Simulated assay, not measured.
Amino acid sequence: MPKADYSHMPETPPVFMSGDESAGLELVDVTLWLAKRLEERKPISPELRALFWSQAKRGMTDEVSLKALDRRWRHLAHLPEPENPLPGDLVKILEDVEEKRRKIVSAL
């Protein structure tokens, strides 16, 4: 059986609540319902259509795949190198992170 790694769990547990107690959750519910209606080509009122598009234009959707991740982050490979050397404390932090990463990867 695989082991679950809970080392990165937040110290404060998540709080679950119904949509009736959260305006944000209620808005998400309505937006998802409207998206489903539009996808199914079912009728919705002009007011709800305007509400949906006002929300849809503010966000961005993207698939979750290696191809999508590559498209999203490919530009980072072409960033210029810093003109000045990094501060010593930042170099130390980066070295520590890299060392931890290598240990984790070698243990896989």
Rank of each mutant, 00 (worst) to 15 (best):
R49L: 15
R49I: 06
R49D: 15
R49V: 11
R49M: 14
A50T: 10
A50I: 08
A50E: 13
L51R: 08
L51Y: 13
L51M: 09
F52Q: 03
W53F: 14
W53M: 10
W53I: 00
W53Y: 15
S54A: 12
S54F: 06
S54H: 09
S54D: 15
S54L: 08
S54T: 09
Q55V: 13
Q55H: 09
Q55Y: 08
A56I: 03
A56V: 07
A56P: 03
A56K: 05
A56L: 11
K57E: 12
K57F: 03
K57G: 05
R58A: 12
R58D: 05
G59P: 02
G59F: 06
G59E: 01
M60P: 01
M60I: 09
M60N: 10
M60W: 09
M60L: 13
T61K: 10
T61P: 00
T61D: 12
D62T: 15
D62N: 14
D62S: 15
E63V: 10
E63K: 10
E63L: 10
V64H: 05
V64I: 12
S65C: 03
L66I: 08
L66G: 06
L66Q: 07
L66H: 07
K67D: 14
K67A: 15
K67I: 08
A68F: 00
A68E: 05
A68C: 01
A68G: 03
L69F: 11
L69E: 09
L69G: 04
L69Y: 12
L69Q: 04
D70L: 07
D70T: 07
D70N: 03
D70W: 02
R71D: 15
R71Q: 13
R71K: 14
R72L: 10
R72Q: 07
R72C: 04
R72M: 06
W73Y: 14
W73C: 06
W73K: 03
R74F: 06
R74A: 12
R74C: 04
H75R: 05
H75C: 04
H75S: 10
L76R: 01
L76I: 04
L76D: 03
L76Q: 02
L76H: 04
L76N: 02
A77C: 10
H78V: 12
H78N: 15
L79E: 06
L79I: 03
L79A: 04
P80Q: 05
P80V: 01
P80Y: 04
E81I: 03
E81P: 02
E81D: 14
E81Q: 09
E81N: 10
P82K: 00
P82W: 01
P82M: 02
P82S: 00
P82H: 03
P82I: 02
P82T: 01
